[in-house]
Design a protein around this nucleic acid. Structure first.
Lengths: 203, 203
DNA sequence: GTCTATAGCCAGATAGAC
DNA sequence: GTCTATCTGGCTATAGAC
């Protein structure tokens, strides 16, 4: 169906697989549907990726490798906590608005299969929280921030940025809002979220 | 296997179905596994619930009817916004700690099947946000709260309360924390979350 | 009400022609 | 590399004995 066909079959397959896996999950996805979307035959999926499991892992790993680097905005640069939070919430929400299925997909599959979690943990450049925690403590000592545990602050930043996308159907119901109103609300959050956090933690 | 057997077969089935559906989702769940867990035969599932779909709906509806009333703490009682938030975050987090799979289950299935969302929307006593929004505006006018949109505040309260459970595998990786440490962190959030919010919005 | 056995279908995977 | 045809297994659901 929706082909970006450069007769680049392997790429077409991966693109279609992303679309299907990310919206239906591993268990709900059908190889036939992926093949249809790529405009090719089911046998080709196995020719290029051997099995459903391996095709799925290609999609999952790519998705994770897109999301993870975004975290370095908050973990690995040298600005103040306030600036980090402003930059992160804004850029992360922008990013997710372009890929709204990614967070639920990752979380759902991590819940489904703890093996993925183990694999990620043993990973090379998995984001490290230590620097962030130290910086938070330092800024508290300096009187820049009110006392707060670095872990909780980090969780709060993620929660406020990501949750509205994971829970989008629920939020649309609560707010009785159209798709358009929902999107506007998410746009607003690019600054609303950091304002909300900064107000809470700034001394 | 794990039976609470009073030879109450229908109840046993529902309990086992909750366990399996909530951890594996509709697509990943197997009728055989539910039967095994209930210590009965597969045919009995169909005898009592006719089909997988209907059994699933029984589980989903029960789960939702457990979660929704908790929202009335924040939407339908008469205390101040500050008290509502304190009560809600504490009681909701306590509740979810006892049923950690519920939120991801509901969100996953709402994402998978928009029909459920539609059904809920048309529902009788679905929580209504209007009262909360009006109260927020009133307290802002009175100078009790700093300016904030009621919708965003509501989303923030939900996000901070629920997200850590939906994202538990991810959070455990980030924090390199054991199950025990994770649980302690969630316990702490019963008060940490409301403190965090109140600091941000109180004038 | 509860069981065994099986029908019927569907999905993942492979064989083999082109 | 790409296709059609087919194998094989697993899953929901039902028939029918007890």
């Amino acid at each position: 169906m929706a082909k970006t066909k450069d007769s680049n079959t392997e790429g077409n397959i991966l693109a279609s697989a992303e679309n299907i896996f990310q919206s239906k999950g591993m268990d709900g996805a059908r190889m036939q549907e992926i093949a249809d979307k790529a405009g090719i035959n089911k046998a080709m999926l196995h020719y290029y990726y051997r099995s459903k499991q391996l095709l799925f892992e290609a999609v999952f790993n790519k998705a994770f490798s897109l999301l993870a680097p975004q975290l370095n905005v908050i973990l690995n640069d040298d600005s103040t906590i306030e600036d980090k939070i402003k930059n992160f919430t804004s850029s992360y929400i922008s990013f997710i608005m372009k890929h709204p299925y990614l967070p639920s997909f990752i979380l759902q599959e991590l819940n489904r299969n703890p093996k993925f979690a183990k694999k990620l943990q043993e990973n090379q450049n998995f984001p490290n929280l230590e620097k962030f925690k130290n910086q938070v403590n330092l800024e508290i000592e300096k009187g820049i921030l009110k006392p707060i545990k670095g872990e909780q602050l980090f969780i709060n930043v993620l929660a406020l940025s990501i949750f509205p996308f994971v829970a989008s159907p629920l939020i649309k119901i609560f707010l009785k809002s159209s798709e358009k109103e929902y999107k506007q609300l998410m746009k607003d959050r690019k600054t609303d979220v950091s304002d909300f956090i900064i107000k809470s933690i700034k001394a």
